Lab assay of single mutants.
Amino acid sequence: MTEYKLVVVGAGGVGKSALTIQLIQNHFVDEYDPTIEDSYRKQVVIDGETCLLDILDTAGQEEYSAMRDQYMRTGEGFLCVFAINNTKSFEDIHHYREQIKRVKDSEDVPMVLVGNKCDLPSRTVDTKQAQDLARSYGIPFIETSAKTRQGVDDAFYTLVREIRKHKEKMSKDGKKKKKKSKTKCVIM
């Protein structure tokens, strides 16, 4: 069974824990209790493949930012979460993405942009803004509501699919490099 290491990042209060708990335990946590770091595991079937999701729910508070490099190193894919009623959390996505790329030393890291709290009427981040940002990053965008469960499975499952595509691409690139290195030079 394939294991996928997913990391949920975003500013404090955007609903990272609520999304994760909704996926794992099928219930909505409405009281806000700032996370330092929590880890969850769940076995699911995605596109006919049974897999184990190892999900790291991270601290959004700035005082825990020193811990970010460590979990970013171990993560295979990242859910970059903002709240649709919090423009600052949307603007912060850029910083999370840049930090992930720096730590992973790669421009090509599996990510999904997630606009959470889409059940709320007080939207300050337009869907088109988020779609445009995701398009500019070359990553999928999904709106979710941890409260109603809308888009929750889709967000995590899409990230797994992005990781699969990335692994497939990397193995193809690896095979191309191996083929090239088999060419021999004969000096007579």
Rank of each mutant, 00 (worst) to 15 (best):
P121L: 10
V81H: 03
D108E: 08
R123P: 10
E98I: 01
K101R: 11
T124L: 08
R73L: 07
C118H: 08
P121I: 08
R97D: 03
V109N: 01
N86V: 02
K88M: 11
K88W: 12
S65M: 07
S89A: 09
F82G: 14
N86I: 02
D126Y: 08
V81E: 05
K104Y: 14
R102D: 04
P110M: 02
E107V: 11
V81G: 02
P110A: 03
S65W: 06
Y64L: 08
L120S: 13
V103K: 03
D119I: 02
G75I: 13
Q99V: 11
E76H: 10
V109L: 04
A66Y: 08
F78E: 00
S106E: 12
F82Q: 02
N116V: 15
D119N: 06
C118M: 10
D119R: 03
E98R: 04
G75K: 03
I84T: 14
T124V: 09
M111I: 11
K88C: 09
E63H: 08
S122Q: 10
N116K: 00
K104F: 15
G115T: 05
R68K: 13
T74F: 08
M72T: 08
R73V: 08
F78D: 00
K88N: 07
P110T: 02
R123M: 11
V112H: 01
T87A: 14
V125T: 10
S106N: 11
M111L: 05
F78P: 00
F78N: 00
V81S: 04
H94A: 14
F82S: 13
K104V: 12
V103I: 13
V125L: 09
R102H: 09
Y71R: 04
I100C: 04
I84N: 15
R123H: 12
D126L: 06
V112C: 03
N86R: 03
Y64E: 13
T74N: 11
C80Q: 02
K117G: 14
V81Y: 02
S65K: 05
Q70G: 07
E98F: 01
D126I: 06
M67P: 12
K104C: 15
N86Q: 05
H94L: 14
G77N: 00
A83M: 03
N116S: 13
I84K: 13
A66W: 05
D105F: 04
R73Y: 09
E76V: 15
T74G: 13
V81Q: 04
D108F: 06
I84H: 15
T74H: 13
R102S: 06
K101T: 05
V109Y: 05
M111Y: 02
L79R: 00
M72A: 07
